[in-house]
Design a protein around this nucleic acid. Sequence first.
DNA 1: CGCAGCCTTGACCATTATCAACGCTGGTGG
DNA 2: CCACCAGCGTTGATAATGGTCAAGGCTGCG
Lengths: 249, 249
Amino acid sequence: MTAKIEALACAVDGRLDPCGLCTARHLSVCSVLADDGLRRLSAISDHQIFTTGEILVREGDPATNLFNITAGSVRVYKLLPDGRRQIVGFLFPGDFLGLATGDRYAFSAEALTGGSACRFLKKTYRRMLAEQPDLEAALLDRASHELQAAHNQMLLLGRKTAVERLASFLADLAARDRRAGGPGRVIQLPMTRAEIADYLGLTTETVSRVTSRLKTRGVIRLLSLHSLSIEKPAELSELAGLDAGDGDA
Amino acid sequence: MTAKIEALACAVDGRLDPCGLCTARHLSVCSVLADDGLRRLSAISDHQIFTTGEILVREGDPATNLFNITAGSVRVYKLLPDGRRQIVGFLFPGDFLGLATGDRYAFSAEALTGGSACRFLKKTYRRMLAEQPDLEAALLDRASHELQAAHNQMLLLGRKTAVERLASFLADLAARDRRAGGPGRVIQLPMTRAEIADYLGLTTETVSRVTSRLKTRGVIRLLSLHSLSIEKPAELSELAGLDAGDGDA
DNA sequence: CGCAGCCTTGACCATTATCAACGCTGGTGG
DNA sequence: CCACCAGCGTTGATAATGGTCAAGGCTGCG
């Protein structure tokens, strides 16, 4: 709520990554912009530092801002009136927040960990889009990927068992790590079990039980509560339903 | 598979809707195009007539075509290796097929009923996009709406009960009818119970049972197997979790 | 060191899936 | 024109997956 905004900390000197502090240029939609485009983008963006639990966006509020996450992690979720929660995505550096937005936010977003984001006024951003067709194309591309990811998640939520859901989740995180240049064996889990549960359409207890079962089977090894290593990647993706879909040994 | 393609039946004389037969201009992304844009669009599109059960797109195939549905209805779905199916959407006239597409289709699409579509080669379409920034903006807008719809469906699949799912589904169809200018009281269900089930993450039996319960409660009235009328719209949206989320009388 | 919050595990339960039988409906061929 | 058949839909009985409730353990911070 009371975010520390460093207005125009995003000023850029032409060579640097956008946003000054922003280390995610190569990951983000900014990557399509030439230097002068970056400079113009910087002129209309704030750099926002957020702390754990801070609310970036609240469902139902007028959609004034868009964000490009540059550090930390964020959960995006929807609520039912009685409090049931569905997390529709976790965001990491380079991810864009606000694509699926009309006049009002249709989701809430909260910081999972401390971090930072480039924040744009939607209005100015729109103008920017019109001037930078490349940027628009990049966003369309990104929206298309997000839509694909959403479809996959619908398959997971609608048709997969608890084990398959958790295995898919871990396999996804591993793939993400690999895409970011990591080995994809050790996974960081910045979120709690409850958040994993709300992402996978399960309860905390089930997430915990299934995790234990995977551990017992030797598929994963817990390094700490918030990091684990994948001991049997092949078995994991089998359990995830990527291969045979029947992973019972 | 053996679609009847009327190549260049989409030729347009400047005043007419695109695609000649296409009656969905005002619904579709075409609506942003001026007449000369339409003419150019027509030049790169086929008009495809499809019959019930015909496959428009197969998951895993190279993504060569994009479609603008002009008549009939289509189911878009994903499969698990063992045959479990998740329908990620039903398409109706004016809907666009292929936004969530990379090099290969990540979904399959089959005709639910007979109908027709404007079919574009992705390659030429890309070029068209570059020439028509308005079209790109319209697609981004549409992608954004689809993403929102996908998030809603994730909430439904992950957190709603069977009754809430069916009520949400019916309320959505009613809203769609209202948006299309209808009264939103009588709903057409071109799909089978099995397809509704695969869309809502349930089984045929559960869909049938829940439908019966809604009928007994007097919330809906079955006019035939494939059309019903909503007798108590307020109660329906309450059951859908749009209001109090607890609709037990 | 103690407390609070998170995680794990266990016992039991509920919702929904599965299995099975039957009814309806629409199309086809005698 | 009627009867049959196939496919879809409905309903019932039973079972299983995952949820709920509850207790206890771990961990990290004050």
